[in-house]
C-alpha cells in the first residue's frame, strides 16, 4: 500500500534574535494508511513542530513532505487549505475554539468552508460529532462557558466532523480526567478500526499501549520507532473503571 505520509530529511529551524533553534533535524519516516502512531518525547523535543508540519499548518525549512503522494512543498496555499479542509483533522493543544461561540457553531465551522455540505447535513454532522465526544447536551454552550475538558472535546469534535483521512492530535487528552481520557482514547481506537490514520502527540507513556506504533523524539531527532503488536483496548479499561454517576 502507498504511504499516506512520507517525510524525508525534514528540518525546521526557528530564528530567535541572533540564535537559530533547530526544532527538527533531518527527520524521516513514513506512515501507512490505517496506522495509529503516537509521538512521544520530552517537552521541547519538537513534537508540536513536527505535527504542525504534518497538518500543513507550517512549512519545513528543508526536506520533503509527501501527503498522499503529493509534495506539500510544491502545493500552493489554496491547495494546502483544501487538504486541511477535506483530509486532515487537527486537534490543538490549546483547543483554539472561536471565542464566545457555541459548541455547535465551532464544530460546524470546517463544513462551512466546504460547499458540498448543505445546512442540514452540516448540522447533522456536527451533532453527530458532538455526540461522539459526549457533549450532545452542551451544544449551545459558548466556548467561554465551558471547562477546559469540555473545550478540548469540542475541539476533538471539530477535528472529526469532516471525516478526515488523517487525524492529528497534540496532547488531546492533556486536560481531561482519567475517565474522559479513556473515552476519547476508545473513540480514537474506533476511528482507527474504521481505517483512519491517527497521529497522537503525547507525553503520557501509557497512551502508547493503545497505538500501533510509537515514535520517540529527542532534540529534533527520532531516537526510537517501535511497532506495537499487543494493542490494548481503551474500551476495556473504560469498562473496568468505577462507574460515575452524573
Amino acid at each position: 500500500m502507498e504511504d499516506i505520509i512520507r517525510i524525508e530529511n525534514l528540518c525546521r529551524n526557528f530564528v530567535v534574535g541572533s540564535e537559530t533553534v533547530h526544532a527538527l533535524r533531518n527527520v524521516s519516516f513514513s506512515i501507512r494508511p490505517g496506522e495509529f502512531v503516537t509521538i512521544m518525547g520530552t517537552s521541547g523535543s519538537g513534537k508540536s513542530t513536527l505535527l504542525n508540519i504534518l497538518g500543513c499548518l507550517d512549512t519545513p525549512t528543508s526536506g520533503e513532505y509527501y501527503l498522499d503522494g503529493m509534495s506539500v512543498r510544491k502545493m500552493g496555499a489554496n491547495d494546502r487549505a483544501s487538504y486541511r479542509n477535506l483530509k486532515i483533522g487537527f486537534i490543538f493543544q490549546s483547543y483554539n475554539l472561536l471565542a464566545k461561540t457555541t459548541a455547535l457553531e465551532n464544530v460546524e465551522l470546517p463544513l462551512l468552508y466546504n460547499p458540498a455540505y448543505t445546512r442540514r447535513m452540516r448540522r447533522e454532522k456536527a451533532l453527530e460529532a458532538l455526540k461522539a465526544v459526549g457533549l450532545e447536551h452542551r451544544i449551545f454552550h459558548r466556548s467561554n462557558q465551558m471547562s477546559g475538558g469540555q473545550q478540548q472535546r469540542v475541539a476533538i469534535a471539530r477535528a472529526m466532523v469532516n471525516d478526515p483521512v488523517i487525524l492529528l492530535a497534540d496532547e488531546a487528552t492533556g486536560n481531561l480526567d482519567t475517565r474522559t481520557s479513556y473515552e476519547i482514547l476508545a473513540l480514537f481506537q474506533r476511528l482507527h478500526a474504521e481505517g483512519r490514520t491517527l497521529i497522537f502527540v503525547t507525553h503520557n507513556p501509557e497512551i502508547a499501549e493503545f497505538s500501533s506504533r510509537n515514535i520517540l523524539l529527542r532534540d529534533g531527532h527520532i531516537i526510537e520507532d517501535t511497532r506495537n503488536s499487543r494493542i490494548g483496548s481503551a474500551q476495556k479499561v473504560l469498562d473496568s473503571l468505577p462507574k460515575e454517576t452524573n
Binding site: 487537527f90 483554539n96 468552508y113
Partner: peptide, 19 residues
C-alpha cells in the same frame, strides 16, 4: 491580535485567503 488568531484558526480548518 484576537482576530489574527481567529484567522489562523479558520485557515487551519481549511479557509482560503480569499474566504
Amino acid at each position: 491580535t484576537e482576530r489574527t488568531r481567529e484567522i489562523g484558526l479558520r485557515m487551519s480548518i481549511g479557509a482560503k485567503g480569499r474566504h
